[in-house]
Computed example of a mutant assay.
Amino acid sequence: MSVPEHITTWRDARFDMPVGRQLERYNELAAKNASARARAELVARGVYDPARHGAEERPALTVDEHVELLALAECVARTVRHPSNVHHALLAGVTWTQIAHVVDSDELTVRRAYRQWAEDQHDLNQRYPDRGMTAEEYAAASARVAEGAGDTR
């Protein structure tokens, strides 16, 4: 798989490389950025010592690399924060209270987000029957949203 010289949007990262490679590249750019900023800070304070801190150059990130770092961060966040994780947690027995606590939100908000995701999955299944949630799966997801809650609209 070839990787573009710079990833310019989260969609580019999503479609051009697996998440493991995204994390590697993100870490590479973040480390380069931290190293350059640390050296600049030491120089600005007047305490930079090449013998102690290393004499090699540590160039700052380019504008393109900053864009790539932002795009990769967004892609990784969207990938690992995917709504299907809530779905699988619910199927495994995790409660709405636990989910809300973990994602630092409230139950009503997480229930609404899950319901919207389920609706989107059901709509997807209507267009592409081999994808998304079937009518039965959607009904079960809707019942999960309503369990133990008042109206979540």
Results as ranks from 00 to 15, higher is better:
19 V>A: 13
69 L>N: 01
27 N>Q: 13
94 V>Q: 05
13 A>L: 04
8 T>C: 09
111 R>M: 02
30 A>F: 07
106 D>N: 15
106 D>S: 14
47 V>P: 00
10 W>D: 11
83 P>Q: 11
93 G>P: 03
88 H>Q: 09
40 A>S: 08
80 V>A: 00
51 A>D: 13
85 N>L: 09
59 P>D: 05
53 H>Q: 06
59 P>A: 13
9 T>G: 03
96 W>Y: 04
107 E>P: 08
44 A>Y: 09
29 L>P: 00
85 N>K: 14
9 T>A: 06
28 E>K: 13
38 A>F: 03
9 T>H: 10
95 T>R: 14
108 L>N: 09
30 A>K: 12
99 I>Q: 02
18 P>T: 00
102 V>L: 10
105 S>M: 05
61 L>R: 12
50 P>G: 05
29 L>K: 06
35 S>R: 10
19 V>E: 08
63 V>W: 09
80 V>F: 07
49 D>K: 14
57 E>L: 14
90 L>I: 06
81 R>E: 07
13 A>C: 02
116 Q>K: 14
117 W>D: 04
5 E>V: 12
69 L>Y: 07
32 K>W: 03
21 R>K: 12
80 V>W: 03
90 L>P: 00
54 G>C: 08
111 R>Y: 06
4 P>K: 14
47 V>K: 01
24 E>R: 14
98 Q>A: 10
74 E>D: 10
40 A>L: 04
72 L>N: 03
69 L>F: 02
86 V>Y: 08
67 V>M: 06
47 V>D: 01
32 K>S: 10
72 L>T: 01
22 Q>F: 06
8 T>K: 13
30 A>P: 02
78 R>M: 12
9 T>R: 14
60 A>W: 05
12 D>A: 13
109 T>E: 11
109 T>W: 02
98 Q>C: 03
48 Y>A: 01
40 A>I: 00
117 W>Y: 15
4 P>Y: 08
